[in-house]
Design a binder for these strands. Structure first.
Lengths: 321, 321
DNA sequence: TTGAAAGCGTTACCAC
DNA sequence: GTGGTAACGCTTTCAA
């Protein structure tokens, strides 16, 4: 900051951070504040964190795939809650980096905490981040990563709810839609596994159904539907469910009589379909809670890693199953 | 960086940035690199930008409202393209700040460029950012802001296309859905204005229809539909269109005979409805082009502000109108 | 109550 | 070819 009001830099620092020890005279404070406004002074985060040895940045990678309203809202909540705790939330636009590479890119900003999908980071990435001064690393995903706190997003149980529901409704030959789009495997594979587990040891079969998110792909699948002989399908999520349901209806397949359809995520969308779409409702944790967890972890970096299950799954039975 | 390999910090800097002047012996280079890996060394972005006087950060505010797949994809593209140009893209989780407040928060990171909705920033915010060293400020939105480059997102023409289409199809009493959700006004108001302009001086009327994104709200609107005497409606976007269409159909209103419905954004969704939804297709600029614009602006900060129209709007006529 | 000075990690510039 | 030194903007300690 310039030698603006004819006082020393230290005085400026005191005033602008209003340091508790009230050692600066009121007139001086006023002069400093005025000069700051006049000059459009903005503190330099880099200099501050260089000196302090750490920043107030909580870093998360920006999602690489277009993400649904559910997750968007979750991120927003979280940002708001972290902001209240005086953290600066930053979504880092990592291009296509993974693991250590990504961790290194993030570490350059010396975030005080990092929140990232476990799959994007790995144990080695966690180590890089911790060594570079991150006081907390929190992973999101199906399993915990060594050395980091874990928010266990149990997508497997989403599939399990759907599978169990279909089975309970008397369905035995069950299809599971697997999105062809890249980047969805971390969600789709556990969901598939959950359906498998629901039918494990029972008299049912599970068939994987690759499906691209476009009408032609859906029409192709629907055209060979009767040949597949399936009486139930878990469509990955509500959007794919809508796509598939439409194609099946166009093909004359009656829902739910011939084939029961279950989606997931409980979007508005599904309520508007006819028949109304049965779905697995997914509960994400409140941003507030998660922000508190991050804050606690930052304050006590040596604490044992927490593993907290989040993402409750509940079956919502409507008309399509 | 620690005094790791028994060489000076300067030598380390040379090796890791492999400075062109090849003045470092190969053995030394090797030693340095090895030590760096061993220590898990990661350069300190804050120190670097403090020294350099500027960062490579391109900052954008993280969207405050859940944003559709269209805009998500656009942001992703842009991030990727800027990453290719060696910028670090950062989405700043600004809680509820606007204008100068927000600008100040962003300026603390000393980004080399800022990309933000014009409404979120204002002329004063632009000034703060420029004074704090941002070499380029690019606004997105319906109108340009003094001192900044502008990407003119012409939502007014989206509404205009819809309005003109409905009028051409013989509709005269036209409703325009206005989402009740906060944060959508920057899009909904221009879209409404566009419809108004399309009917300007013609023998038609425009009626605003507030609508919350939930079934009850839609049902209430549908219940009083016949009383409104509207023969056409522009539903803000495809999602609201789907919500409204379903409610109207449940009420027995025939589409498009009694009421024509037009959405916007050309989502997959609309193709799956019956009747298929007419919509206004929106073209966002390629991330690549925009990244180039930012890069040019950064290289020549003194250049006259560009105002570039983006977001082409095309009417896609399907069955609902 | 205020000012001077050190030091955070980097890099540009000069001596060695 | 190498290494020392200063400076970037800020906070903090110490002295005036």
């Amino acid at each position: 900051m310039a030698r603006l009001a004819g006082v020393s830099r230290a005085t400026v620092s005191y005033v602008l951070n209003n340091t508790d020890a009230v050692r600066i005279s009121e007139p001086t404070r006023r002069r400093v504040r005025e000069a700051a406004r006049e000059l459009g002074y903005v503190p330099h985060a880099a200099a501050r964190s260089l000196r302090a040895g750490h920043s107030r940045i909580v870093l998360m990678p920006a999602p690489a795939v277009p993400v649904g309203p559910l997750y968007s809202r979750f991120i927003n909540d979280l940002q708001w809650a972290l902001g209240r705790l005086d953290y600066t939330v930053v979504q880092h636009g990592t291009v296509g980096l993974h693991g250590v590479e990504a961790a290194r890119a993030w570490a350059e900003l010396r975030p005080v905490a990092v929140l990232a999908p476990g799959s994007a980071i790995g144990a080695e990435g966690v180590a890089v981040l911790r060594r570079s001064g991150a006081r907390a690393v929190v992973t999101l995903g199906p399993e915990a990563v060594e050395g980091a706190h874990a928010l266990l997003m149990d997508h497997e149980s989403v599939g399990h709810r759907a599978g169990a529901h279909l089975y309970a409704r008397g369905r035995r030959r069950i299809g599971v839609v697997m999105p062809a789009e890249r980047g969805l495997e971390p969600f789709s594979r556990p969901r598939l596994a959950g359906v498998r587990r629901a039918l494990d040891g029972a008299d049912g079969t599970v068939t994987e159904l690759p499906l691209g998110y476009d009408e032609e792909s859906a029409a192709r699948l629907a055209a060979r539907w009767r040949g597949l002989g399936l009486d139930g399908v878990f469509a990955y999520n509500d959007e794919y469910a809508m796509l598939l349901m439409r194609a099946l209806q166009d093909e004359g397949v009656r829902i739910p009589e011939e084939t029961a359809v279950v989606g997931a995520d409980d979007l508005m969308l599904g309520r508007l379909l006819r028949p109304r779409l049965s779905t697995v409702h997914v509960d994400l944790p409140a941003g507030r809670d998660l922000a508190d967890l991050v804050d606690r972890a930052v304050r006590d970096p040596a604490a044992a890693p927490e593993r907290r299950p989040v993402l409750g799954a509940t079956m919502v039975h409507r008309e399509s199953s």
